[in-house]
Structure formats: structure tokens, C-alpha cells
Design a protein around this nucleic acid. Structure first.
Length: 264
DNA sequence: AACGGAACCTGAAAGC
DNA sequence: TGCTTTCAGGTTCCGT
């Protein structure tokens, strides 16, 4: 499920829960989330460690440990972080010195858990990523130069993590609707005006989704109300022009929602 | 290199 | 009601 907004909210929560805390013990079991690492390697690297801070780039999280090591997490499609119980598929549990437990729940196991040295994990998982829409480097100029390198449909290009980090299927659709850009046009064909609108739209949709989540909004999959403009709204009237209906197509194997009138 | 499609998984929702 | 199919907000691998 998680795109940048959910991951950023997860980062804030994890930072809040673990601030100044010691991991008394970690529990995990053998699962594909661990990759080649043994459960023992993971639990040994975490036990007794103090969490010094939690960083995010795109959809990737890194918790710095006092040892100079770090815990890397990717929430995949269905991963989430929560306190205490209420989770059926806990893949990692961190028991803190205040008696609380942080749980990484992930039914589909598309997420990823790694331990290692902080520099190694940064190099492996952060450095290959492109522009992060919440950082200062995300400007119309940098976006223009990045998009100029791709001839793929703009919707597909927006989701390529080595170009722009953190945008997924929902945020891509929402940003293109806000910017009134046809999802099918080649990325490099956007003129400076369109790139400027897109840059603003990406920041806007990401910030708005974060604000919604912070105010308690639930994921669609957890029964939450659909707060998006076009995502998941095939057949409904476009909320802007109120004339055309939202269409659903498929690009790169993923559903794309857009207004053929506003974004034609 | 670039692209489409399948694969990896489980569970909820829709279809019959 | 219950069985079957489809779909899901991510990433990676494989063949063309």
C-alpha cells in the first residue's frame, strides 16, 4: 500500500515511539522479508541498541542505531508499523525499554528488512533513488532535467524510483490530474509550463495525503473513505470539470485513472 | 537499453 | 450461501 505519504507518516511514528529508547529485544522469524539474512543476525544486530533517528528517502526507511549500524525497512505493498497488537502477520517486533512493542506487520511479504552498517545501507538503498518530492532539490528545473531523459509515458516515468523517489500509483494519478497532464504523453515531451505544474502538483498531493493520514484517515484497504480526486473513481464524474467521467486504463500493468477532458 | 509481462504473496471484494 | 475470479497503493526478474 504505502507510497511516500504513508512511509513518511510511518517514519514520524517510528521516530516518536523510539526516541531515546533502547531496543531490549527483537523478534523475527524466517521469512522472505529477511532475504539472505538469518533471523539471528537480525535480532543480534538490534538487541540492546539505542535508536538515534529514523530517516526516509522515497519509500525507504532507515533507523540509525548507536552502534553505527542501522535497520532498513521497506513496507512493500501491505506493510505497516504499529504499536502493540492487532496485527496478524508480524514479521518483526521490537521490544522497547518502556515496555512497548513496535510491530512490522506485512501479510503479503513484499516488504524488506535488513540490518547492516549505516553507510552500507545508505549506499545500497538510498543512493540509487531519484528526486524526493519533499526535499529542497525537487524543483521545476531538476524535474525538467530528469524527465528529459525518459521517453516513457509520464505516468510510468513518475513511478520510476531512480528518477523520482516515492511516487506510486495513486500519487502519480492524482498529480497528473492536478496538473492537467495526459498520463500517456512521453515524459520528455512536457513543456516547461507543464513541468512546473507537475512539480507543484506532486508536492501538493503528497503533502495533502500526509495531512489526511496525520489527521487519522485510513487506507482505502482498511475501509477508509476515498479522499482522492480520480484514483479509484472510474465512471464517476470528474470533480473538476463535472462533465466528463473518469476513465480507467492500464499502463505498465497498473491501473491509471484520469479525466479525458481535463487531461486530454 | 528499453519495454511488456509474469512472478512474488495474501486477503478483500466482486461476480456468479 | 459459497465457490471462483479479480484486483490491490511495490519491486524484480526474464524474455524479446
Amino acid at each position: 500500500m504505502p507510497e511516500l505519504p504513508e512511509v513518511e507518516v510511518a517514519r514520524r511514528k517510528l521516530a516518536h515511539w523510539t526516541a531515546g529508547r533502547l531496543i531490549v529485544r527483537a523478534r523475527t522469524g524466517k521469512s522472505r522479508l529477511l532475504g539472505p539474512q538469518s533471523p539471528q543476525k537480525v535480532t543480534r544486530a538490534l538487541r540492546g541498541q539505542r535508536v538515534e533517528g529514523v530517516e526516509r528517502r522515497g519509500k525507504h526507511l532507515l533507523a540509525r542505531l548507536a552502534s553505527g549500524g542501522a535497520l532498513y525497512l521497506h513496507l512493500g505493498m501491505t506493510g505497516r508499523l504499529l504499536l502493540e497488537d492487532g496485527a496478524k502477520h508480524v514479521r518483526l517486533a521490537l521490544e522497547l525499554d518502556d515496555g512497548r512493542r513496535v510491530l512490522f506487520d506485512d501479510p503479503r511479504m513484499f516488504g524488506r528488512i535488513r540490518v547492516g552498517s549505516y553507510p552500507d545501507l545508505v549506499e545500497r538503498y538510498f543512493e540509487p533513488l531519484g528526486l524526493d518530492p519533499l526535499r529542497d532539490h525537487f524543483t521545476p528545473g531538476t524535474l525538467q532535467s530528469i524527465l528529459g531523459r525518459s521517453g516513457r509515458p509520464i505516468k510510468v516515468a513518475l513511478m520510476e524510483q531512480h528518477l523520482i523517489a516515492g511516487i506510486g500509483n495513486i500519487q502519480a494519478a492524482e498529480a497528473l490530474w492536478l496538473a492537467k497532464i495526459d498520463p500517456e504523453v512521453p515524459a520528455r515531451s512536457l513543456d516547461p509550463g507543464a513541468v512546473r505544474r507537475l512539480q507543484r502538483a506532486l508536492v501538493e498531493t503528497v503533502r495533502r495525503t500526509i495531512a489526511d493520514l496525520e489527521s487519522g484517515a485510513k487506507y482505502l484497504s482498511e475501509g477508509g473513505e476515498n479522499t482522492f480526486f480520480v484514483y479509484g473513481r472510474a465512471g464517476e464524474k470528474c470533480p473538476r470539470c463535472e462533465d466528463a467521467h473518469v476513465l480507467r486504463t492500464v499502463q505498465g500493468g497498473r491501473a491509471t485513472f484520469y479525466c479525458p477532458r481535463c487531461q486530454g
